[in-house]
């Protein structure tokens, strides 16, 4: 964490005056929690007192002053889930994760929390892990939920899901293959390109599976940053001809071997993309 990155977040929300919650939300989105130092910087920059900011940060349950685990497990203890055995599910998670409610496991993988109600009482007891809902959870299910989370909840089954398939990408100018068989993402060779953003040059590897948004990058690309993407062979910018239909950032265009053009949004976090398969057999 650096004070400059906090200052940037505050500057970005300058048009929403005195909106401490927005600033804190952005900081939390970036770091996963609210570091003590960040609150001091916010107090300094916004001219509000640290007491008030600390009060807001401790008032809302969304905010956490302690680092949280990679996965957030929320066990519903609303009335309906409570009578259906929510507390015993909570205890089962405490045993399975070996941590108390409200705490993070030693390996920083899980944070165990309880929520009052998720509004889906008919499906209780409910457990939410990283926005994935598990309904009618039994004590026996608890270990399965933990195991599944460790395997990756967003993982798509390429062999079963028809809307997801691997493609082979080549540069639209020099027709060199961009596939990198030495670097696997989603168990398939990744697409290697060069990126340029904020005066940083580096490699970026995209999943070649159409429908997967997994990437690996030399530098951490901040959310919502727009990057320029180049072919690593001919160094041409892989520019698309239209703006992203979702966020209007420039699109990046690449050619699919066998015919067709795939365009992806250049903004980090935006899932705007299109596949034009004219001429593809």
């Amino acid at each position: 964490m650096s004070a400059d990155s906090i200052r940037k977040i505050i500057d970005d929300t300058r048009d929403q005056p005195a909106n401490i919650i927005v600033v804190l939300e952005d900081i939390q989105a970036k770091f996963g929690y609210l570091p003590e130092e960040s609150l001091r910087v916010v107090a300094e920059e916004t001219g509000q007192s640290l007491v008030d900011i600390y009060g807001v940060a401790t008032f809302y349950k969304t905010f956490s002053l302690k680092p949280r685990g990679q996965h957030r497990v929320s066990v519903c203890l609303g009335t309906a889930c409570h009578v259906r055995g929510g507390p015993s599910i909570e205890k089962a998670f405490q045993r399975a994760l070996n941590c108390k409610t409200g705490e993070t496991t030693d390996d920083k993988k899980f944070t165990l929390e309880t929520v009052a109600c998720l509004g889906a009482c008919a499906l209780g007891p409910i457990v939410v892990v990283d926005q994935h809902y598990f309904s009618k959870v039994t004590i026996d299910d608890v270990r399965r939920v933990v195991r599944k989370t460790l395997e990756g909840l967003d993982k798509v089954d390429i062999t079963k899901d028809k809307s997801v398939f691997p493609v082979e990408i080549i540069c639209s100018r020099c027709a060199h293959s961009l596939m990198d068989p030495t670097f696997l993402i989603d168990d398939y060779p990744s697409v290697r390109v060069t990126i340029y953003f904020e005066r940083m040059h580096g490699w970026l590897r995209l999943s070649s599976v159409y429908g997967s948004y997994n990437i690996e990058s030399e530098y951490e690309i901040p959310m919502d940053a727009v990057v320029n993407i180049f072919c690593p062979h001919c160094h041409t910018e892989l520019k698309g001809n239209i703006p992203c239909p979702e966020c209007h950032a420039p699109m990046v265009s690449m050619v699919v071997r066998g015919g067709g053009v795939v365009q992806i949004c250049s903004r980090r976090g935006c899932k705007g993309h299109m596949l034009d398969v004219t001429g593809m057999n």
């Binding site: 007491v51 008030d52 008032f59 002053l65």
Partner: peptide
Amino acid sequence: AKAIGFRGRGDRRSIGTPF
């Protein structure tokens, strides 16, 4: 001075300095 203030909420509400 604004050295102390309310922290937390509900049954965990307390008065004190930040952190």
